[in-house]
Measured scan of single mutants.
Amino acid sequence: MQGVVKVNSALNMRSGPGSNYGVIGTLRNNDKVEIIKEVDGWYEIRFNGKVGSASKSYITIVN
């Protein structure tokens, strides 16, 4: 499943599904990500070869 980031500035990509996990990357508006699965309001995603988590509130699913 594919998604597109929708933010005003930037979205942190984290090492796990929650804001208490470390930041491993930064996503910008309109970045395209691969959604692997949903976990507690977060998506596990793949972006630029990295796997991490980002809040699903800022990612829109595209077909």
Rank of each mutant, 00 (worst) to 15 (best):
V7D: 04
F47H: 10
G52H: 02
N48Q: 13
G49F: 04
V51D: 06
G18E: 04
S57N: 14
G41P: 02
E38W: 05
I35C: 04
Q2W: 15
S15W: 05
T60D: 13
K37F: 09
V39W: 10
V33T: 00
N20I: 08
N20P: 01
S15A: 13
S19T: 14
V39S: 09
G52D: 03
E34M: 10
I35V: 11
V62I: 14
S57R: 15
E34W: 13
G18N: 06
M13P: 03
V62D: 10
V51F: 09
K6Y: 06
Q2H: 13
S55P: 15
I24R: 01
V7Y: 06
S53L: 14
S53G: 09
W42L: 00
G49N: 09
M1Q: 11
N63A: 13
A54R: 01
R28F: 12
I59L: 03
V33S: 01
I45H: 00
K37I: 08
V39T: 11
T60V: 14
G41C: 08
V33D: 00
M1L: 14
A54V: 15
R28L: 12
K50T: 12
I61V: 12
I24N: 04
G25R: 02
G18F: 00
I59N: 00
I36Q: 04
N29D: 10
N20G: 12
D31Q: 08
G22H: 13
Y58M: 11
N12L: 13
G49H: 05
R14Q: 06
V33R: 00
Y21P: 03
N30E: 10
V33G: 01
D40Q: 08
N12Y: 12
L27V: 05
D40N: 13
G16Q: 02
D31W: 04
V4H: 06
S55V: 12
V39P: 01
M1D: 06
N48F: 07
I35G: 01
G41T: 06
T26A: 08
L11V: 15
E44S: 04
V23A: 05
D40I: 03
N48D: 12
G22S: 13
K37E: 07
T26S: 09
T26G: 03
S53P: 01
W42N: 01
S15Q: 08
I36C: 08
I61K: 07
V5G: 04
V51N: 08
G22E: 15
Q2F: 15
Y58T: 08
S9M: 11
V4R: 09
M1P: 08
I36M: 10
Y58G: 14
V62E: 11
Y58K: 10
N29M: 09
G52T: 02
G41W: 05
A54C: 11
G52V: 04
N29I: 07
K32T: 12
K37A: 13
E34C: 13
M13H: 04
N63P: 13
V23N: 04
M1N: 09
A10S: 14
N8Q: 12
E34I: 11
S57I: 14
E44N: 09
V23R: 03
I59W: 00
Q2I: 15
V39C: 10
W42S: 01
R14G: 04
K32P: 08
G25A: 13
S19M: 15
I61E: 05
S9K: 14
V5Q: 01
G41I: 04
Y43E: 00
G16A: 03
V5E: 02
G41Q: 07
K37H: 09
V5N: 01
S53R: 05
N20Y: 10
D31G: 02
Y58V: 09
I45F: 06
L11C: 14
R46Q: 09
G3K: 02
D31C: 06
T26P: 05
S19R: 13
G22F: 08
G49Y: 03
V51A: 08
K6N: 11
G18V: 00
G49C: 08
S57P: 06
L11T: 11
